Simulated assay, not measured.
Amino acid sequence: MTKLSVKQQKFADLYIETGNATQSAIDAGYAKKSARSVGSENLTKPDIKEYIDKHMTEMADKRIMSAQDALELLTKIAKGEEKETVIVSSPEGIYESKKEADLKTRIAAVKEILKRYPAENPLTQAQIRKIEAEADIREAQAAEAKNMTDSSSEVMIVDDIPED
């Protein structure tokens, strides 16, 4: 790639930022009358095109999550380090709260991480079974507590129990 002139580089940088060839040409210092044709022509010049493509690719690479980034996020979720924002409404008003992922989400994160490691470790499998069992117990407890609160308004009166 040959070196771009100052004007060409300014045009290319502005075009990367705005996507508008005509306005980029004007802002780079080209004549307003010829900005449209110069902008269009600049986009066909191999050196300018290569410069723009290279920088656009770099920008796209920065926006896309890498496999390492994904594993780090999954690890934070699995460890309960990643918090999510929850909007809570109460009689006093609405407020935001941060909470860690529930057990099912954390288990799913652990499973996703383990998919990337081919060797199945018996200890890890036992730990996953334990966590899943704990999650099932907590769900059952929550359901039972909900049923108790739902049926707490019902009262059973027992009288006149026959004695033998």
Results as ranks from 00 to 15, higher is better:
Ala78Val: 00
Leu114Arg: 08
Ala140His: 05
Ala35His: 05
Gln68Met: 04
Lys45Tyr: 12
Leu74Cys: 00
Glu112Asn: 13
Asp159Pro: 00
Lys115Cys: 04
Lys79Arg: 14
Gln68Asn: 12
Val158His: 03
Ser66Cys: 08
Glu81Asp: 15
Asp150Gln: 11
Ala101Gly: 01
Lys54Asn: 13
Ser40Tyr: 09
Pro118Ala: 12
Gln8Gly: 12
Ile107Leu: 13
Val110Gln: 08
Ile128Leu: 15
Leu43Arg: 12
Ala135Cys: 14
Ala78Tyr: 04
Glu139Trp: 00
Asp69Ala: 13
Asp47Gly: 09
Ser97Pro: 00
Arg63Ser: 13
His55Ser: 03
Gly19Tyr: 07
Ile26Tyr: 04
Lys49Asp: 14
Ile94Thr: 15
Pro91Gln: 05
Ala60Ser: 07
Val158Leu: 11
Lys111Thr: 02
Ile52Phe: 08
Ser151Tyr: 08
Glu163Val: 14
Thr2Pro: 08
Lys7Thr: 11
Lys3Ser: 12
Gly93Leu: 05
Glu58Gly: 03
Gln23Thr: 12
Thr57Leu: 15
Ala70Ser: 14
Ile77Ala: 02
Pro118Met: 11
Leu4Val: 07
Ile48Trp: 05
Ser89Asn: 13
Lys115Pro: 02
Lys99Glu: 09
Val110Pro: 02
Pro46Val: 13
His55Asn: 12
Tyr51Ser: 09
Ala109Phe: 05
Ala25Asp: 06
Asp53Glu: 14
Ala31His: 09
Gln23Ser: 09
Lys115Ile: 04
Ala78Leu: 02
Leu73Phe: 12
Lys10Val: 10
Lys54His: 13
Ala67Ile: 07
Lys32Cys: 01
Thr124Lys: 02
Lys130Phe: 13
Glu134Ala: 06
Lys146Leu: 14
Ser34Pro: 00
Asp13Met: 09
Ile77Gln: 01
Ile137Ser: 08
Glu41Pro: 00
Thr105Asn: 07
Gln9Asp: 00
Ser153Arg: 08
Leu114Gly: 10
Thr57Cys: 03
Ser89Phe: 10
Ala142Cys: 00
Thr75Pro: 02
Asp164Met: 02
Glu134Gln: 13
Ile64Arg: 09
Glu100Asp: 13
Asp159Leu: 03
Glu144Trp: 13
Ala109Ile: 04
Ile77Met: 06
Ser153Gln: 11
Thr57Gly: 01
Lys99Trp: 00
Ala60Arg: 14
Met59His: 03
Lys79Trp: 01
Met65Val: 04
Thr105Ile: 06
Ser89Val: 10
Tyr15Arg: 03
Asp102Gly: 11
Lys98Pro: 00
Thr124Tyr: 01
Ala67His: 04
Asp53Phe: 05
Glu92Leu: 15
Lys49Arg: 15
Pro91Ile: 08
Glu72Asn: 11
Met56Gly: 00
Ser34Phe: 03
Ala101Val: 01
Ile113Gln: 03
Val155Lys: 10
Asp69Ser: 10
Lys99Ile: 03
Asp150Arg: 13
Ser5Gly: 04
Lys104Glu: 14
Asn20Pro: 06
Glu112Ala: 14
Gly93Tyr: 01
Glu84Ser: 06
Gly80Pro: 04
Thr18Gly: 06
Val155Ala: 07
Met59Phe: 10
Lys33Gln: 08
Leu43His: 04
Ser90Asn: 10
Lys130Gln: 14
Asp13Cys: 06
Gly19Thr: 07
Ser90His: 08
Met65Phe: 10
Lys130Cys: 02
Ser151Phe: 10
Gly80Gln: 07
Gln125Gly: 02
Ala119Leu: 11
Leu4Lys: 06
Phe11Gly: 04
Glu17Thr: 03
Ile107Arg: 06
Ala133Glu: 15
Ile64Glu: 07
Asn42Ala: 11
Thr22Arg: 10
Glu82Tyr: 06
